[in-house]
Design a protein around this nucleic acid. Structure first.
Lengths: 219, 219
DNA sequence: GACGAGACGAGTGGATCCATTGAAGGAGCG
DNA sequence: CGCTCCTTCAATGGATCCACTCGTCTCGTC
């Protein structure tokens, strides 16, 4: 997974990065207004780089800008969230296939450790972090820059609903998730790309269908 | 296909729109430098809305920004172009499936006319325009906003190579394309979603493979 | 003659100030 | 008492000016 540099030397990139982290951490709720002045003060800059940062985040799909009105944290509705999962269902197996040949024994061992750790830890935030690490690690050896960036964006925009859903179902509701994670690691370790893609596609598909049965996540 | 408003009332949107058209029309070549001052003069605005417009185009994947250096028209390399086609190969059949139930008899008749017209007209620019119209029309009844926007972005970023390839193979080299277009319209008219998706996937896949055999398009 | 350091210039990034728009609250009329 | 219109203001959009960075050219030295 190739991540853009964003060295932090340029203010707009630094602000965009900080805001992105804040949104993914749940510090801002979807639909919440983001005032330029407030953000500028928070980052010790003028409104100008803030405006550029908001444009960057808009390109990430994390922020929605309305001309002459303002900026809000993006709020996917139920349909759009389902769309994201349908897209992921078709693209992530492709990305995994691209990455698999490059995965080292060390990578696979790390994936297994992550799967085990998130099975042990019941905390939602820990689960979210480890689950993200787990899957992105499985994609980390892919050399497909566009696809990798696209997938990461989809993960970012659905992050809030992943959290809401994880809270809703609790640790018990995640047992199938862990089972699928181990199936995935096993398939990868065997070098069985077909099976790994099938497991991954099913993993995402099942999540989408479960989400569809819990519309209260979007309330 | 849902297209963002961009009413033109706000300068940055107006500039972004104008630049997007110019890039898609081939007025700028990939890799070409885009100076803020030049663009500002062209659109009768200051450099500030130009900077925001460039950010917007960056989000469209049409422009590449480098901090403290400048902006260039995005240049996909061969690998990235192939990636775009692989992504399209998996997503456009999905989008077509979403759109098909909403397509009217009028839509389908229009598609057939477009297919016939582009078979008759040998000019490259005409072909590019009609081909784009043809496919986007087939997606036009889909209510999937994210997917629709994503597909349109992929069409935009590969537009330049579509043109270069169309020039290279000439009207004769497009005969298979027309054949596939009619297969697609027929399947849609029969309401055979499975077959339509299969034809479309093959259409995109074949194009990708043909592109891979003509690396001179990227030179 | 070639390589490296320093100065110059073009161009981008950022801050401040002004114009404009959209919304909210209050007053007046029906 | 409620609806409409107008006023007011807060927040965004845009222009100008200044600071800084990067590339290039030149001069000096080895």
């Amino acid at each position: 997974m190739v991540v853009t540099d964003s060295t932090g030397s340029v203010a707009s990139l630094r602000i965009a990065d900080g805001l992105r982290r804040a949104i993914l951490a749940g510090e801002f709720a979807p639909g919440e207004r983001m005032r330029q002045e407030v953000i500028a003060t928070r980052f010790g800059a003028s409104r100008l780089p803030v405006r550029e940062a908001l444009r960057i985040l808009q390109s990430d799909g994390l922020v929605t800008l309305v001309a002459n009105s303002g900026a809000w944290v993006s709020q996917l509705d139920e349909r759009e969230c389902a769309e994201s999962y349908e897209i992921r269902e078709r693209l992530e197996p492709l990305l995994l296939r691209e990455s698999m040949p490059g995965l080292t024994a060390h990578d696979i061992a790390a994936m297994r450790r992550l799967a085990e750790e998130m099975e042990r830890k019941p905390e939602v935030e820990t689960f979210l972090r480890l689950d993200r690490e787990f899957h992105l690690l499985s994609y980390s050896r892919a050399e497909t820059v566009l696809l990798s960036a696209l997938i990461e964006r989809l993960w970012n925009t659905t992050q809030h609903y992943r959290r809401a859903f994880a809270v809703l179902v609790g640790a018990d509701g995640r047992r199938v998730v862990h089972y699928e994670h181990f199936l995935l690691v096993d398939a990868i370790q065997r070098g069985d790309a077909e099976d790994a893609q099938r497991v991954l596609g099913g993993h995402i598909r099942r999540t989408r269908l479960e989400l569809a049965q819990h519309p209260e996540v979007f309330g």
